[in-house]
């Protein structure tokens, strides 16, 4: 396959970026999208040109480090798939592919296609945990959790923190991400003691980081590589309103 790439190049967070066109030649349909970029980069290095920076690590769809908005879609055209698991057979020969970084005020560009998602970490630090220290905890089987609840909590816990929800949302809202963690703990007995504090702290931190608000378009759910459901957002709303108006 031969492709034309329009890639966002930006030196650092303070400079303005622009699109640069590259040719990707002799691409095998069996390559992953990132391997295709590897090939392009290797060609650039050979020509002593600066390679395209993009975030990636595990390349098996679980670390959440890869990103890229590909032709207007976070993680590309394939549903429930991260960019590293997207293969070139999803494209056609002679396609033009536009590659952009996640765009959000709270995700400043680090370089080219890599962005700073530390806002996500700071939200988790605000309350995304159960306050237990190491040791002195009860036996694991002293806490029985109905399977349906455990499974539902698990669905929320599968979030990989990639930020595709923010990238997809027209308001750059982080609610799917935040609600997944709040939901996981709200459903589990371990999360109960700090349930409402946590919801309040995490939502307030999310706002402070400058993410937009949810207008329920559900684009996040459609683009989430782990298929996290927007019912988590509904649950987060309930937790937050209960925290603010009922529990006081």
């Amino acid at each position: 396959m031969n492709l034309t790439l329009k890639v966002w190049r930006q030196k650092n967070s303070t400079s303005t970026g622009k699109f640069v066109t590259y040719k990707a030649e002799e691409i095998s349909p069996d390559m992953s999208f990132l391997e295709m970029l590897d090939v392009v980069n290797e060609g650039l290095v050979k020509k002593k040109e600066e390679p395209i920076q993009f975030d990636h690590d595990c390349r098996e769809g679980i670390c959440g480090m890869c990103s890229l908005v590909i032709n207007g879609e976070p993680h590309g055209p394939k549903r429930a798939t991260t960019t590293c698991q997207l293969h070139m057979r999803s494209f056609k020969d002679k396609d033009t592919i536009v590659i952009e970084p996640w765009r959000a005020n709270s995700f400043p560009v680090v370089k080219d296609l890599a962005v700073d998602r530390s806002a996500f970490d700071r939200i988790q630090q605000a309350g995304g945990y159960v306050s237990v220290g190491t040791g002195g905890v009860p036996d694991a089987n002293e806490i029985a959790i109905p399977k349906v609840i455990a499974d539902e909590a698990f669905n929320s816990a599968t979030c990989i923190g990639c930020g595709a929800c923010v990238a997809a949302c027209k308001n750059a809202s982080a609610m799917l991400f935040v609600s997944a963690k709040i939901s996981q703990y709200a459903m589990l007995p371990q999360g109960q003691p700090e349930r409402y504090q946590r919801a309040e702290a995490m939502v307030m931190k999310m706002d402070e980081e400058g993410f937009g608000s949810c207008t329920n378009t559900y684009a996040c759910e459609a683009q989430c590589p782990k298929e996290i459901k927007v019912t988590n957002i509904a649950r987060m709303n309930r937790e937050f309103f209960t925290a603010e108006f009922i529990k006081g």
């Binding site: 329009k6 207007g72 879609e73 976070p74 765009r103 997809a168 308001n171 937009g212 378009t217 459609a222």
Partner: peptide, 22 residues
């Protein structure tokens, strides 16, 4: 919400949402 994304996408994200919601 506009402030949350100061630099717009070159290609508007396709996201499977219904028209009215946007």
């Amino acid at each position: 919400n506009k402030k949350a994304r100061p630099v717009a996408y070159a290609i508007t994200p396709k996201d499977g949402s219904i028209w009215s919601s946007r």
